[in-house]
Amino acid sequence: MFDWKWDFTWEILPRLVYATGNTLIAAGAGYVIAVVLGLMLALAQRTPSRALTFTVREFVEFIRSTPLILQIFFVFYVGPQFGVRLSPWMSGMIAIGLHYACYLSEVYRGGIESVPKGQWEAAIALNMTTAQKYRRVIIPQAIPPALAGMGNYLVGIFKDTPMLSVIGVAELIHTANAIGSENYRFLEPYTMVGIIFLAISLPAAGLIRLFEGYVRRKLGL
């Protein structure tokens, strides 16, 4: 490329690698929140309470229909208005975890609904408690069909972490912005960030597919 400076690229690489670490931590922590919270949101929609089901359903719809970046701002700025100060990391994790929890709750719901009715009846016939039914019978069978969706959203959350830069989380794009404005050079930092994203998300997508196949085989499906 015409103006590509290799020495500058090498110079900024350590900072970008460090920021990649932050990006991965953000994606990982956000995903853990999403996996747990998403399960709660999914189970909340299966309780006998129609009011609770309806409320959770509408909440999930609302979160899924509105931009994550706006939700990040909302969480970050609204707290202080009421005297709660949240750090950028904290707000970012809440926003991104909640956003993806809503997506994952839909994935779980699909998984649970794919378990045949006969399995519920068999669990009742064994006189299991509700918790036992879910833990021992339903959820193990709901996971394989949900795996593809869960994998997609893991990569999805990773690709959405750059939005955290707007509230000052020092992930990849935030670092690239800083490097760019310090040196008045944007070509190398932004291109490198793009390459780093590709270098992580493409193999990750492949690995997830392999893992999916492994779990399916393991469960004899």
């Binding site: 794009i173 944007f186 070509l187 932004y190 291109t191 590709l198 493409l202």
Partner: peptide
Amino acid sequence: IEIFRGTSLVVQLYWIFFV
């Protein structure tokens, strides 16, 4: 497809606008 799905929209936006 792989480039646009493998990187982030924010990165693509900055690249198009700044690079």
